[in-house]
Design a protein around this nucleic acid. Structure first.
Length: 457
RNA sequence: GGAGCCGUACCCAAGUGGCUAAGGGAGCGGUCUGCAAAACCGCGAUCCACCAGUUCGAUUCUGGUCGGCUCCUCCA
């Protein structure tokens, strides 16, 4: 079965046929680096990582671009310039640029620990202001913009298919459905959005433009940067589901109106991670749900990755420590699969079919839960290893108890314990075993003797 | 108010118009062990929120009810 993916635009699974085979070009909305990413954010990047690995497994050459949003674009209070990046800068006594670099590094450190491959290109918004201005100029030439005392806007009434992706019924949308939303009276239509802010004197990050000194609107960076690196029309655009009604809807409008061409062929969206049946919000203390806090609590980052693989990317996933514990134990089972017990060692003929079933599961809109279930059912080391190219769980490395030399301290403890055991001094033996466990080793006694090895998880 | 999603065992979570409703974890029983841990073997939903309807047959399709979630210019 060839790769099929769910396209939000058609609300159906479609066969993936790239525009320029064997290239597969995808753009993913990246982090806004004013704070630490939380595990909910990270779930989406895991999904995108699975996508790029699956594309590659299918033989495509992946060109993956992910932006780094290092300019604050949101304003909740026009007079104060209450911008996420700026608030963070003031809070921490640093410049917005320092803040952005700091959290960008933290982000890539987290993704690396989750075995999320780094996209081929990770452009920063602040380094593409020129491209954004050029794009707004084109929109202006094409007659899709208007200027007010506050900003340059995109006029959504000029774009007939506005809202197609989200199937918005503009007449039924309620402007400012949430109380916190500041409404701009200078807009012509509720759905119009800012291309370039001009009336924000207290904003620290600002640039010259044909419309005045200011900074870009929220959506323009993704359009400008994706087109720069992937062309005016490319294959796949990903992001979180929350981006469907606004961000991606606006990206489509401004992109297609500036070029006159279709923007993206397939739209894919990852569902939210929930905690206590509610989403984690970055702006309301979401940073306590950092990957680092899980690591500090003794969890392995890959256990979190494994947990995410057990749920489909288009389903909400209820996160809890209990679920993470279960994932940790499940991963341990994966790592304990031994090549010498491989069921296909005696039955070579069964391998291709098994391999195909797992592959088909993955190719059916990234069915990682089915794939993992099948892999467990087969219990084949060889199969796990082959598909770890997609799963990214470091199985080869973690499952082989490396014959690393044990530290002298550990060897001494083992020797003492062996002595205690031969003299049947069980109290000392158990105490010594506890010491070894505390040092991160697994101790096992069997009729063949005692084995001590570093814990894989 | 509008749009969309979801409700499967103790937990996480697949799935299908009709063979025994995946898989993992926990739990229980067993093998192994001085005892453990790990590993391995076995057990585990007569049932898929509830109520109608369509159908020879629905957990799977339709309608409604209840409950939960997300979005409607912070968000992955």
């Amino acid at each position: 079965m060839s790769l099929r993916i769910y396209n939000t635009m058609s609300r159906a699974k479609e066969e993936f046929i790239p525009l320029h085979p064997p290239k597969a070009r995808l753009y993913c909305c990246g982090p806004t680096v004013y704070n630490y990413a939380h595990i909910g954010n990270l779930r989406t990047y895991i999904f995108e990582d699975i996508l790029r690995r699956t594309l590659r497994f299918n033989g495509f050459e992946v060109e993956h671009v992910m932006n780094v949003t290092d300019v604050g674009h949101m304003t909740t209070d026009a007079d104060e310039g209450d911008d996420k990046m700026q608030v963070a800068a003031q809070r921490e006594g640093k410049s917005p640029w320092d803040i952005a670099r700091f959290y960008e590094e933290a982000f890539f450190s987290d993704t690396a620990r989750l075995n999320i491959e780094r996209p081929e290109v990770t452009p920063r918004a602040t380094e593409h202001i020129g491209e954004m201005i050029e794009m707004i100029k084109r929109l202006e030439e094409n007659g899709y913009t208007y200027n007010t005392s506050e900003a340059t806007y995109f006029d959504t009434s000029k774009y007939a298919t506005y809202g197609k992706l989200a199937r918005l019924n503009l007449n039924e949308q309620r402007q400012g459905a949430r109380a916190e939303v500041v409404m701009d009276e200078t807009k012509r239509n509720p759905s119009d959005f800012v291309l370039w802010f001009t009336n924000k004197p207290t904003h620290i990050m600002k640039w010259e433009s044909p419309w005045g000194v200011g900074y870009p609107g929220w959506h323009i960076e993704c359009s400008a940067m994706s087109m720069k690196y992937l062309g005016e029309t490319f294959d796949i655009h990903c992001g979180g589901v929350d981006h469907v009604p606004v961000h991606h809807t606006n990206e489509i409008a401004q992109s297609e109106c500036s070029t006159g061409h279709p923007f993206v062929k397939y739209w894919m969206h990852g569902e939210f991670l929930l905690t206590n049946n509610a989403k984690i919000s970055k702006s309301t203390g979401g940073s306590i749900n950092r990957l680092q806090s899980l690591i500090d609590a003794g969890y392995d980052p890959l256990a979190y990755r494994y947990l995410c693989l057990q749920a489909h990317y288009r389903s909400e996933l209820n996160f809890s420590l209990e679920a993470l514990d279960a994932a940790t134990a499940g991963l341990r089972k994966v790592y304990s699969t031994r090549p010498e017990n491989d069921p296909f060692a005696q039955n070579e003929a069964g391998y291709p079919e098994a391999r195909q079933r797992v592959f088909d599961a993955l190719n059916d809109d990234l069915g990682t839960p089915q794939a993992v279930g099948l892999l467990h059912a087969y219990g084949s080391y060889r199969l796990w290893i082959e598909f770890d190219a997609i799963l990214g769980l470091d199985i080869a490395k973690r499952s082989q108890p490396t014959e690393e030399a044990l530290p002298a301290e550990v060897l001494a403890l083992i020797e003492q314990r062996n002595a205690a055991r031969t003299s049947k001094n069980w109290a000392d033996s158990d105490a010594l075993r506890n010491q070894l466990i505390a040092l991160g080793y697994e101790v096992g006694d069997s009729s063949q003797g005692t084995t001590v090895k570093r814990k894989a998880l």
